[in-house]
């Protein structure tokens, strides 16, 4: 048995996903979803589960992470439900409870370490130089001060909790 949790709606609203209430379950989203064609992710079902407050079922689900954020559903939704924003908000709640795939954690760690989602590679640095570009791009990678500023933002907003083991 699943147990609906009406309080979840308040939590969703606080997370910026309150507009899920606008969904009237027509299924246009699922019909056009390229991920749904290839996985068990069903957009309409996820929206209904959110409306009903099936919190644990959603936050533990693999399907929550199978949306590629392509916005096809958002473009076609007759109720203008911000579906991708809702998926993102639900993912935030899942991550806050420690649900995170190892490769996603690696991406988060790269962002913390480099200020970029991918690491610097020697062969690319050499290629950059051969093209007349600075070996290290003029981003946060080239400035300790800028990196320290970004680090501070990550700490203040609680991102370090995500990247710690």
């Amino acid at each position: 048995m699943v147990s609906p949790n009406p309080e979840f709606f308040n939590e969703l609203t606080a997370a910026g996903a309150g507009d899920v209430k606008l969904c009237f379950q027509c299924g246009t989203c699922t019909a056009g979803c390229p991920s749904g064609r290839r996985t068990s992710y069903r957009t309409r079902k996820l929206m209904r589960m959110a409306q009903l407050g099936l919190r644990e079922e959603i936050l533990n689900s693999e399907e929550l992470w199978e949306c590629s954020t392509c916005y096809t559903c958002v473009e076609r939704c007759p109720r203008q439900v911000p579906i991708v924003d809702i998926v993102i908000s639900l993912r935030n709640l899942a991550v806050a409870e420690g649900h995170m795939y190892p490769n996603h954690k690696n991406t988060a760690k790269n962002f913390s370490k480099y200020g970029h989602t991918v690491p610097v590679k020697d062969d690319i640095t050499a290629l950059r130089e051969s093209l007349g570009l600075p070996g290290i791009p003029p981003t946060v990678l080239a400035s300790d001060k800028a990196k320290a500023d970004l680090d501070k933002i990550l700490t203040v907003t609680g991102f370090d909790k995500i990247t710690s083991e």
């Binding site: 991550v95 962002f111 981003t139 946060v140 800028a146 907003t157």
Partner: peptide, 16 residues
């Protein structure tokens, strides 16, 4: 100068 990752909308935004 000094810019970072945007940060990525499908991952970093989904995390926090």
């Amino acid at each position: 100068d000094d810019a970072s990752c945007c940060p990525a909308p499908g991952v970093i935004r989904a995390f926090n």
